[in-house]
Structure formats: C-alpha cells, structure tokens
Simulated assay, not measured.
Amino acid sequence: MDISNLQVIKASGEKAKFSIDRVAESLRRSGANDELINSTLEKLKSELYDGITTKEIYNRAFSLLKEGNKTSASKYKLKTAIYELGPTGFPFEKFIAALLSHSGYKTETGKIYQGKCVTHEIDVEAKSDKKLILIECKFHNAGRNSDVKIPLYIDSRFRDIKNFRNNGKNKLDFEEGWVVTNTRFTADAIRYGKCSYLKLLSWDYPEGEGIKDRIDKLGLYPITVSTLLSEREKNFLLSRDVVLCQELINDTFYLDHLGIHNPRKKRILKEMEELCKH
C-alpha cells in the first residue's frame, strides 16, 4: 500500500503523519543490522493501515525484531521498559539514582530536607566531591507530558530549602536542582527551566543527553527490558531494589532465589551481559 499519506494515532490520541524513516532510525538505534532493519520494515509495511496506533506499530516491530535479534529487541523496547518500572513511580526514582550512582555520584532516595516554611521529601539526592544535586522525578504513563506547572512547583520547593536558615548558619547552597521525567517536557516547561536555571532531564532532552542517550552510552539498562524474565520475576527483582541489568549480573543469587534452573539462568545472564556492553 502507499504509505506516503498514512495517518497514525499517537498515545495522546493525536493524529500524525507516519514516518518510515523514524521507525528505521529507532530500529538502527537498537543495534539491528541493515539486513534485519530492511526485512522488518518490509514485513511491517504490509500490515500498516490508515489510523493504526503507534502502539500497534511498536508491538509488531518489536515482535519482528525479537525473531531476528533478542538483544536489539530489548534495546528497542527501552521506552516501554521504563513505563514498566511501575505506576507508583518509586522504581523510576531508584532507576535515576542508580544511573547517577554509576556515573560517580553517591545517591540517596527519599531524604527529608527542612525548608524555611515546610519540610520536603526529595526523591533523589546525588553528591560528588564538588557538587550536591537535589532531584525530583515525575513518572507518567504514555501520552502524558510534563507541563510548566511541574517545574514551577518543584522550583518553589527547592527555593524553600535554599532559604532555610537555622540561627542564620545553615543555609543550604546545593549546586543544582533537577526535574526528571520519563516522558517529555512541554515547550513552556523547557523555557521556564532555562530561565530559572533548573536542569530538566527527559526521555530525549537535552538533545544528545536525555535519559535514552545516557542509558545507551553507559549500558545501564533497566531489568524490565529483558525478553527472557517474566513479569513476576521482574517485579520480584524490583522489590529487592535490583533495577539495572548490571546489578543482576553482580547479584546472580537472586536468580537462584527465584528457582531459575541453570540453563535458563545462563541465557538470562548472557542477555544481561550483551545489553551492558557499550
């Protein structure tokens, strides 16, 4: 069929023009070779129709990729894997803390800070020898972005913490305040972040340094990308604070605790090791 004028339905419900180049690029970023990309696209083209959802396109492309290269399929499902960290958002906070921990920071989650007016529970505290960063995480389901109200609200909390003084001595001058989301920021949110010197980090922002780029560069994939672990097994690992594939490689006894037999255990660990190469 002619796909040049094909309309797709995004997770937000909006219509958009289908781009085969965008699908090809996402397949390429998963590490798939040209042969697998071309065969996947040819099969996918035959199944497209006007009004198809982006979720349907993703599911079909993922299935085709999984048949050809499971490691590429795992990387391709990264965005969905972030959603699978859970609706409470707490595993997402752990994941961001783990990313920063493997980037040289000492991290803590859920730390309480006194502000001038009220106390605040901060999602992630990240410390290095030269810098203290306070981070608030906003986890959303597909189709919902973070608008300007979110950085406005979080900025006011950070300002309250900075303004706290105990007998005029304990003003906290942390280096940076961050707002991190697993989806995207609206244009107004980004403008406010730049104006207020609030660092924003989303799926693809800042360009070249978003969450996806950081994961790919460092090889720090969440365990939810696995195509071999069951949902029950992933939930068990997350409940034990095993968020990254790298952490599972270092703590393989969790697989024994789950009663996973040795041949399957070897396949899972091989998958983890392939994903962690960068």
Score class of each variant (00 low, 15 high):
72 S>D: 15
262 N>T: 10
252 T>Y: 10
96 I>C: 11
21 D>Y: 10
217 K>Q: 10
106 K>C: 00
73 A>W: 04
230 S>C: 06
175 E>Y: 14
125 E>H: 12
32 A>K: 04
45 K>Q: 15
100 L>K: 10
68 G>Y: 01
271 E>Y: 02
138 K>I: 01
113 Y>V: 04
55 K>I: 05
35 E>W: 07
223 I>C: 07
199 K>Q: 08
103 S>V: 05
254 Y>R: 00
250 N>S: 14
31 G>C: 02
143 G>F: 12
34 D>C: 01
165 R>I: 09
272 M>A: 08
20 I>A: 14
101 S>T: 13
53 T>W: 02
126 A>G: 02
3 I>N: 08
41 L>C: 07
50 D>F: 03
3 I>S: 10
210 G>I: 03
225 V>T: 12
235 N>K: 15
201 L>A: 02
81 A>S: 12
186 T>E: 07
95 F>M: 04
135 I>F: 00
210 G>P: 10
260 I>H: 07
222 P>V: 08
33 N>P: 06
48 L>Q: 04
266 K>Y: 10
133 I>W: 06
32 A>R: 00
173 D>V: 01
230 S>R: 13
65 L>T: 07
170 N>C: 09
89 G>Y: 12
142 A>I: 14
16 A>G: 11
192 Y>R: 15
122 I>C: 04
63 S>Y: 13
170 N>E: 12
236 F>D: 02
10 K>W: 12
258 L>D: 01
157 R>T: 03
205 Y>V: 01
248 L>V: 05
117 C>L: 10
85 L>G: 03
179 V>E: 08
21 D>N: 09
231 E>G: 10
201 L>I: 04
48 L>R: 01
250 N>L: 13
87 P>R: 13
180 V>T: 07
192 Y>K: 14
113 Y>C: 03
198 L>M: 12
117 C>N: 10
233 E>C: 04
114 Q>K: 00
225 V>Q: 05
266 K>V: 09
137 C>D: 02
235 N>R: 15
100 L>V: 12
221 Y>C: 00
11 A>F: 14
275 L>D: 00
218 L>S: 15
262 N>M: 07
124 V>G: 01
128 S>C: 08
251 D>A: 14
185 F>V: 08
209 E>A: 06
35 E>S: 09
47 E>A: 09
47 E>D: 08
152 L>W: 07
160 D>F: 05
5 N>M: 07
81 A>R: 02
156 S>N: 15
273 E>W: 06
151 P>Y: 03
175 E>G: 11
73 A>G: 09
177 G>A: 11
98 A>P: 03
212 K>H: 06
54 T>Y: 02
228 L>Y: 05
107 T>F: 02
125 E>V: 15
49 Y>W: 12
